[in-house]
């Protein structure tokens, strides 16, 4: 067999093996690798590189060494899933660098983390003043996670005690002009419903680049042809407006009539409708 064919065969087979080893070792981003995974990655790559290009070394040497470098990290990962001390040893522990707003200089030193590194990581999180930080922890991957002081955290609906309607993730039901039947089924809708909604908007499905349905069953689409205007869902705002109009009408009737009993009836219903509006308005926004 000529050498070049051997090299092609080796390259292809080792590529496949390396692919599956990496897959079985778990998928992680390069920046999230722990020490062990980092070493394994480098060594496996090195072994493959050497054996692909040097024909003097027999191919089974490559297989044996790759297998060992695969099975040991694999076992280490299995054991560390079960045992916390072992995990702390192989994957490292997170270290608190700011507690109660005070910098822990000793811990910084242990991690070889300079003051400049700390400031840089804080700036990454948009914090320019150390005094704004309540708590910060340095993860084994080298990432700094920060809990700002209470007054520096972004305000949430809970802080404002707002009553908000719950919602689920929107489902993408049209992609590149084709309906996605599986995600339609997820929200218990069918293609006929989709056709009807598209007809209401006066667009054909071939012209839709992307279409999504929110948890209230309202469809929003993006078209290939950006010059066409697409109506935004108007059902909910329209409903709220109609309710408000009816409430105002009932109040008018109550003012206009002279009959005490009828006046009372209109007033009662106007109040009921106001209650209904208050009840539902968070859901119609």
């Amino acid at each position: 067999m000529p050498d070049w064919i051997q090299i092609i065969l080796r390259a292809l087979s080792l590529l496949v093996i390396l692919f599956f080893f990496t897959k079985w070792l778990g998928m992680k981003q390069l920046s999230h690798l722990n020490i062990f995974e980092y070493i394994t990655g480098i060594v496996l790559g090195g072994i493959v590189a050497i054996h692909v290009s040097t024909l003097e070394s027999p191919i089974h040497f490559a297989l044996i060494s790759m297998f060992i470098w695969f099975i040991i990290p694999y076992l280490v990962e299995l054991i560390s899933l079960k045992s916390k001390p072992f995990r702390d040893f192989t994957q490292g522990k997170s270290r608190v660098v700011i507690q109660n707003g005070k910098i822990m200089e000793d811990n910084l030193k242990k991690e070889h983390y300079s003051t400049d590194d700390l400031l840089e990581s804080l700036r990454d999180r948009n914090i320019f003043k150390v005094a704004d930080v309540e708590f910060a922890v340095l993860e084994p991957t080298g990432k700094l996670n920060v809990l700002p002081k209470r007054e520096n955290r972004p305000i949430t609906a809970k802080d404002l005690s707002l009553n908000l309607a719950p919602d689920r993730e929107p489902q993408t039901v049209i992609m590149d002009g084709k309906p996605l039947l599986e995600s339609l089924a997820n929200i218990s809708l069918n293609p006929t419903w989709l056709e009807t909604e598209l007809e209401k908007m006066n667009v054909s499905i071939e012209n839709v680049f992307l279409g999504q349905v929110d948890s209230d069953g309202q469809l929003t689409v993006d078209l290939y042809d950006d010059t066409l205007a697409v109506p935004s869902p108007s059902q909910k705002p329209l409903l709220l407006a109609t309710m408000k109009k009816c409430q105002a009408d009932l109040e008018l009737f109550a003012l206009a009539t002279n009959n005490e009993e009828t006046k009372h009836l209109y007033q009662r219903n106007s109040e009921k409708l106001q209650n209904a509006i208050d009840h539902i308005s968070p859901y119609l926004r």
Binding site: R168, S215, Q235, L238, L239, T242, I280, Y283
Partner: peptide, 23 residues
């Protein structure tokens, strides 16, 4: 009557149990 019917449609369309109850 229109409001009543629209609410019924919304209640049937949503897949969120809490929203459905409110409708």
């Amino acid at each position: 009557k229109n409001i009543e019917a629209t609410l019924a449609i919304l209640a049937n369309q949503t897949n969120e149990a809490k929203s459905r109850n409110v409708y």
